[in-house]
């Protein structure tokens, strides 16, 4: 997994923050719009992650003679 690829949890945490920010009362329209777009973009990213990211199985060399 390359360092740059974000983990599911990292993307999800950012989305949670966007959603809670959007639920604040004193939000001005401008802010609401940017948060909205950000949120939708993060949802897309999560969906892609779930649909495309492959699981990898790597067999480690065991330190004993099997």
């Amino acid at each position: 997994m390359s360092k740059s690829a974000r983990t599911y949890t990292e993307i999800k945490n950012e989305l949670d923050q966007v959603v809670s920010a959007l639920q604040k009362e004193d939000l001005d329209v401008e802010e609401a719009l940017t948060l909205y777009e950000q949120g939708q973009q993060l949802i897309k990213e999560l969906e892609n992650y779930l649909q495309q990211a492959e699981n990898k199985v790597i067999e480690l060399k065991a330190k004993f003679a099997k």
Partner: peptide, 28 residues
């Protein structure tokens, strides 16, 4: 689920050699 990395250590799961191999894998 997706995007997981699963690192496998193949051990014997029964027989005399099993305990030692399992422990070695855990420690590894």
């Amino acid at each position: 689920w997706s995007g997981l990395t699963i690192e496998l250590i193949d051990v014997q799961v029964q027989g005399e050699a099993a305990p030692q191999q399992i422990i070695t894998a855990i420690n590894q």
